[in-house]
Amino acid sequence: MGEFITFLFAGLTIGAINALTGLGLLIIYNVTGVINFAQGDFVMLGAMGAVLLAGAKGYPQRLPLLIAIVLVVIAVAILGAIIERMAFHPRRHSGPLLLLIISIGVSLVIEGVVLVITTSKSYGLRNFTSGKPLLVLGGTVSLQSLWVYGVTAAILLALYVFFSHTTVGKAFRACEINPLAARLVGVRPSRYWTYAFALSAGLSALAGAVIAPMTTATYNMGLALTLDGFVAWVLGGLISPLGVVAGGIGLGVAQSLLDGYLPSVLVSYASVFPFIVLIAVLVARPTGLIQALPDRRV
């Protein structure tokens, strides 16, 4: 029982990160139609940036953690906007395949630049709060996991308020639902491409900073994160933020339990599980997942 609880909480942590990456993909896709392969690299940038600014585990401290994280999130958000302006915007009428390949290129560039700076070593960040892991129902939960849950919940709440109660957020949703109608009421969809990239990059960077103490940050961690986020997004049905969160958490818990309980012969295949789920879901509902949005008011 205690073992199960431990795996469950570990799964929730992985799931929260999957969900945040998936939400980043969803925000960009809904506004721009781009599937952003660099999403996981934004997470990596958040983790790596927090490590660089705050000082890696075992190295002298530089900036206080809170300031480091705020700076990193802002910097990555601005970087997201710059990337959109430079790489995607000039080619935005060129069809989805070209944009997808561009995002693969952007991902390689980010990884390359980080490689140059960090020289392919991996770094950990110190925990946000020190202390012993909590005991819950016989299982253990690390304090950092609690931070992950808390930050994820706060982000979800903030996103909900942003999208449903602020004018900018409503304009975002207008751009997703009907770009032409949005233009008619004075919202420029092409400008919201940039905002979407900035928001999504900042969100992912925050997720990266929060998990940096639990997983070491390396320059090439992005692709795996992108793909897990993608599975969460597809599971959640592509347009529903709540669905993405549910999909991400479900996936994370399943991953963790498989890792824990699969017989040792099969455990080396556990990493394959998300992709089997992904292909199965995609193939089983190839059209059902891409639902036409009903006309809505925001």
């Binding site: 599937i35 993608f230 080396s268 295949y269 992709f275 190839p286 997942l289």
Partner: peptide, 27 residues
Amino acid sequence: PLFRLQGHFLAVATLGVGLIAYAIFQA
């Protein structure tokens, strides 16, 4: 089954096939 998918969903699914194949080659 794969070619029921279109556009970038095909891209991600086939990338998934590549990852599965790599994991099998490894394990």
